[in-house]
Structure formats: structure tokens, C-alpha cells
Simulated assay, not measured.
Amino acid sequence: MATTINITKRTDTKINNVDFNNLIFGTVFTDHMFYCDYKDGQWQQPQITPYQAMSFDPAARVFHYGQAVFEGMKAYKDEEGKIFLFRPDQNFKRINKSSARLAMPEFPEDFFFEGLTELLKLDSAWIKPGVGNSLYLRPFVIATEPAISASPAKEYRFMIILSPAKAYYAGKVRVLFAEKFSRAANGGVGFAKAAGNYAAQFYPTSLAQKKGYQQVIWTDANSHENLEEAGTMNVFFRINDTLITAPTSDRILDGVTRKSLIQLCDDLNINCEVRNITVSEIKTAAKNGSLKEIFGAGTAAVISPVEAFEHAEELFELPEIENSYGSLLKDSMLKIQHNLAEDKHGWRYEVR
């Protein structure tokens, strides 16, 4: 198996046409992309080429049976121009875990990290220094074999594309607790970053948006009583001085930001419980004043504070508080990611 990447560089650059102060998340892409095909039972020669459209057969299985998984990562640049990733080993493990669940071949670790490194070195100018600036990395795998029989594909393409980013959500969000629709069920693919998980959320989320809410916080499929995660984020609840987040399961994504925040809580002496939490518990806490914060946590959003939630036609506004746990944790996370604070857990990965 080849261990070096075939690199074709772009002769010019698109960067001078980009307004980095007015980025719309996920709509602007850098000069290059990485891809590697799986054929004849093995991964082929990895490629880096200029970012461009690609052609696929109409019968490619991804279009018919949804064999597609992805990851979300970020690269950061400090004031000295050094480039860092945040816990990329976790993303590598998770994309292969997701692939395995969808009967797709796992990607080699050396290809993954070499691809990331060479791509980021080529497009390093797209990573702007400063807290809040980042380069969003989207590794993904799709089934490319042209066949419409209902079985796993024999051919795949692994790709990485890059998109400069600022904050994913501006300001606080309003959420709706799910009462009818479900994101995932026991024994399903909720733990995987399968493309179909997100497609299935779009309709109920659009209904919530028509009511003035940005996101849905999903409840379990059986009882719709246990609060689990939001559309693009894991979710944390603060009752008095305790943070609570749901345990991972078949239904809940093992978020890299989530697990990092749990560790940061320990570092900062914030009590954090990983346990089931119910709609009724949160509504009771909101009514008696002990519910202090709700926030989402994810790679794109980092932390998104929630200002209000609705359930069963009851609306609850959350209080404005100073020195919130969400803001404290976000500040701590960003400082580690941007090389502005000690990295006692070895989370930063320098791109050399």
C-alpha cells in the first residue's frame, strides 16, 4: 500500500476573493482537497488536488442507500503561525467507528494524518490567527460503486475538504423539546456520524424554526421523556451549581467537545454529572428557579447558550447570569485550542 500522497497544486489561489469578516459557515472552501479511493479490497494512492467538482455515476450506491459518514474538526493558528488540531485522534477513531456501523471499510491512520498534515500545510494561509477564527475540516466517506442492488458497496471515496469559519451560531438560541419526532433509537446509528441522521432531523427542525426556534433538543424514542442531544450538538443542563449531560449510548453521539468539557469541569472544580435527565426534571427546575443554564456543545458551535425552551406549549425563559459555566468553559476550551493556555491533557496536535 502506498504511503505517500500524490499532490497536484493549484496554480493560483481563491483566497484574495474571500471576505474573512463575513463568512457564512460552510459555504467557502480552500484551494485544495484530499481524496483516496477504495477499490479491489484496498485503499489506493491518496491524492491532493485543486478543489473542484467531481463526477459520480447516477447508480453510485451513496445516492440510493445512504452509505455516507463524516467528521467535523477544526484547525487553529496561534500568533506565531503554528497550526494546531484539537484531539484529531478522536475524530479518526470515530469516523472508522461510524464507517464500520454502515458496513464501510475503515481508513488507514497514516493516510488520515498525512492527508490532514499535507492539506493544511498547502492551505495554511486560509487559517487566520485569533480566538474565534478557525479552519473547519470535513473528512467524509461515500459509497461510489455504480450498482443499485441493496447491499454494501465495494468501492468508496474518502475525502477531506476545508472551509474557513468563525462562530457557528451568533448569540443565544431558542430550542424546542421534542414530543413526537425522534433522532435515533436503541440499536440504530445515532452514535455514528451518518449523513442520514442529519437529513432525518431537517423536517422536524424546520417545523421548530417556523415557531421561532433554532434547534430541537431530542428526547428518547420510547418515552420522549429523557433529554438526549440537540440537532448539531450535545447538550448540558445546569441545575443550581451542577452541570448534567446525558450518557452516550446507541442513540447519542460521543462528541469530542462534550468529553473535553467533562474533563474541563473536573479541572475547574465544576460538578458535572453524566446521567439521564428528564423533561419533567428540567421543567420543574425552570419553574422553581434552580435551572441556571442550558447550552449546546459541538465542534462547529463550541458552546451555544440557550435562552429559552418550549415543551407542551409551555415556554420557559432562562435567566441572564454573570460568569456562566458555559462562558467559562468556552473560554478555557478556546485558549487551549489556540495555544493560549497550558495543555495538560495533550489535546493539541501541532501540524508540522
Rank of each mutant, 00 (worst) to 15 (best):
Tyr136Ile: 05
His64Val: 03
Asp19Glu: 06
Ile217Phe: 04
Tyr213Gln: 05
Ala341Val: 06
Pro58Thr: 05
Gln90Gly: 10
Phe309Ile: 03
Asn323Cys: 03
Glu320Cys: 08
Asn226Arg: 12
Ser260Gln: 07
His345Arg: 12
Ile48Arg: 02
Ile148Pro: 01
Leu291Pro: 00
Trp126Ala: 02
Val189Ile: 15
Pro139Gly: 00
Glu118Arg: 14
Arg101Tyr: 03
Phe191Lys: 14
Thr13Cys: 13
Gly130Val: 08
Asp254Ser: 15
Pro108Asn: 03
Gln52Ser: 14
Phe237Leu: 04
Pro146Gln: 10
Ser332Glu: 12
Tyr35His: 14
Ala199Asp: 05
Met33Tyr: 08
Glu179Cys: 09
Ala246Gly: 01
Asp267Arg: 08
Ala170Asn: 15
Ala312Glu: 14
Tyr136Trp: 04
Arg275Phe: 03
Ala147Lys: 12
Glu155Phe: 07
Tyr35Ile: 07
Arg138Ile: 09
Pro146Arg: 10
Phe309His: 03
Lys292Val: 11
Thr13Ile: 12
Ala2Pro: 15
Met1Arg: 12
Leu334Asn: 13
Glu229Pro: 01
Asn6Phe: 09
Thr8Asn: 12
Asn276Trp: 02
Gln337Pro: 01
Ile148Val: 13
Glu314Leu: 09
Ser149Met: 13
Gly26Arg: 08
Tyr136Gly: 00
Asp89Ser: 10
Gly81Thr: 07
Pro204Leu: 03
Asn226His: 12
Gln214His: 08
Gly130Cys: 10
Val256Pro: 01
Gly66Ile: 00
Arg183Thr: 02
Phe111Pro: 01
Glu225Ile: 02
Tyr156Ser: 02
Ile161Pro: 06
Gln52Pro: 06
Lys292Asn: 07
Gln337Phe: 04
Leu243His: 00
Ile95Met: 14
Glu322Ala: 15
Ile161Met: 13
Thr3Phe: 14
Phe236Cys: 04
Lys14Cys: 09
Gln209Tyr: 00
Asn269Gly: 04
Ala150Asn: 11
Leu102Gly: 02
Gly289Asn: 00
Leu135Gln: 07
Gly212Cys: 06
Gly188Tyr: 01
Ser260Pro: 03
Arg10Phe: 11
Phe29Ser: 11
Phe34His: 02
Trp218Met: 05
Thr245Ala: 02
Phe112Met: 05
Trp347Met: 07
Glu145Pro: 06
Lys97His: 11
Ala297Glu: 01
Asp57Ser: 15
Asp12Lys: 13
Thr27Ala: 07
Ala230Gln: 02
Glu342Asp: 11
Phe29Ala: 12
Leu119Asn: 00
Ser163Pro: 04
Thr117Trp: 05
Gly289Val: 06
Phe29Trp: 10
Lys287Ser: 12
Pro88Cys: 05
Val175Glu: 05
Tyr168Ile: 06
Leu243Arg: 01
Thr117Glu: 08
Asp110Ser: 13
Pro129Trp: 11
Tyr35Met: 13
Ser260Tyr: 05
Arg10Pro: 05
Glu71Lys: 04
Phe29Cys: 10
Asp343Cys: 06
Val279Gln: 00
Lys193His: 08
Thr4Ser: 11
